[in-house]
Design a protein around this nucleic acid. Structure first.
Lengths: 241, 241
DNA sequence: GCCGCGCCTTGACTTACGTCAAGCGGCGTC
DNA sequence: GACGCCGCTTGACGTAAGTCAAGGCGCGGC
């Protein structure tokens, strides 16, 4: 596990020179988490943020009744919980490793010192937080104003837009996808079934094929969702210049 | 309308010296909006951000069917749409003046230049965006995992916590409050009625009195919501040091 | 002081979606 | 290759909350 390389692979830090990368790597701690292992819980003191070197992590909330809602899924090269650096307090959600892998932890105070010395980095972080805000606003709109079929349609179209292939592997197991879309497995299953019956998609295991993009878009009722569950990257230009 | 004074009254800029304040004021444009007047629409190019000098603004989204969801309400001293500065693109929601008043507009490019010269200001903005993110995460949790009575209970408790008085004037007309809680006036009305019938609150016009905080808290099912519809301020320390 | 208009309330009804409970099926284990 | 497990599907049902449609009430205008 080469920490410097791991830090260099983080898109947030893609604008940094070798010296700055080394400084960032110097404050990072490598942590290994197994599949299903908890990284932090809602209510834990927010002592720093993380990045994914390898593996996959989900950020989620639970109701008292035990229902889960996945806010975000992050993969290699992405950072999460970066709000901890600036807001302190406690984490407002849980983080759990979905796959075994290496994760980096950046303690907030030490990272803050780096920021103070690198105004460019601060601007890049502003860009990152801005993107996150946009995504959340979008998710809010989805949850409060659109129904499950519309959300699912958007999500499928987004998967389609991200891939060249006709057959799209779902980025998450269906149960998790349900939680990401703000619903439950039973409902997702039924809606997917309906889409198949109506000839919008075909479904085989955990892969979908979009058969009728036009009708799917009509159903989505919106230009197509921003921010996949997994894999969206920082545009290198954001927050710079 | 003294622009410098208006800028000095913005809590985001409370850490600035006279010289910096003057520089910020120099890029600001004063705009007057009447009650109900639109400031921008979702989809408009995000060319800058705003502050409220006097008046009140709501940030909201609409469904195709015309249903509205209020994300935020801002009053004097607060800024909104600041994401525009760092993310560009288009506004993801609508802004509308709820009261006649003076609003300042800060064009993104000009403001960015100021930021480049003032690393402290960049850190303060990081703090502000972080607070916004926390609020949105909270709202997401509310919408996806909690029911209307729980959300309302949280909101009432929050109002109570913010005021010394026993009788709390609602911060928004009931119809708007419904949209803020992610529901509709009919449902809000019924739930309020139920609270009154069960002796949790008493209601007179647009003022509530909390009669049974303990049961209300149990109903809220959570430690009590962060971020009122209106009036939360930047902690001066956030993002500094 | 009366009228008219918005805002709010109330009631009857509909519906999307969650709950509960079986059963199926693919997959890894031994 | 059979077993057991977990994730998914399916059906029957319950319910929170939205829709539709009348009123009522407070408030400002004249």
């Amino acid at each position: 596990m080469d920490t410097i390389q791991a830090v260099a692979d983080i898109s947030l830090f893609s604008g940094l020179g070798p010296k700055e990368l080394a400084a960032v790597a110097a404050v990072a701690e490598v942590r290994r988490y197994g599949r299903g292992q908890d990284i932090f819980f809602s209510g834990d003191p927010a002592e720093g943020f993380f990045s994914v070197a390898s593996g996959k992590v989900r950020i989620y909330q639970t109701s008292l009744a035990g229902k889960e809602h996945i806010i975000h899924v992050f993969g290699p090269g992405e950072v999460f919980a970066e709000v901890a650096v600036f807001a302190g307090g406690v984490y407002p959600a849980n983080a759990q490793a979905m796959e075994e892998g290496d994760y980096l932890f950046f303690p907030r105070e030490r990272f803050r010192k780096l920021l103070a010395d690198d105004p460019d980095l601060a601007l890049t972080m502003l860009g990152l937080l801005s993107i996150r805000l946009r995504q959340l606003v979008r998710k809010l709109e989805d949850l409060s104003l659109r129904e499950v079929p519309a959300r699912l349609a958007s999500h499928l179209l987004l998967l389609g837009a991200q891939s060249k292939k006709r057959v799209l592997p779902l980025d998450l197991p269906k149960g998790q996808l349900a939680a990401y879309l703000g619903t439950i497995p039973e409902t997702l299953s039924r809606v997917l079934r309906r889409f198949v019956d109506e000839g919008l998609i075909s479904l085989s295991g955990s892969s979908v094929e979009i058969l009728d993009p036009a009708r799917l878009e009509a159903l989505a009722g919106a230009p197509a969702a921003a921010g996949a569950a997994f894999g969206e990257k920082m545009p290198p230009a954001a927050g710079r210049g």
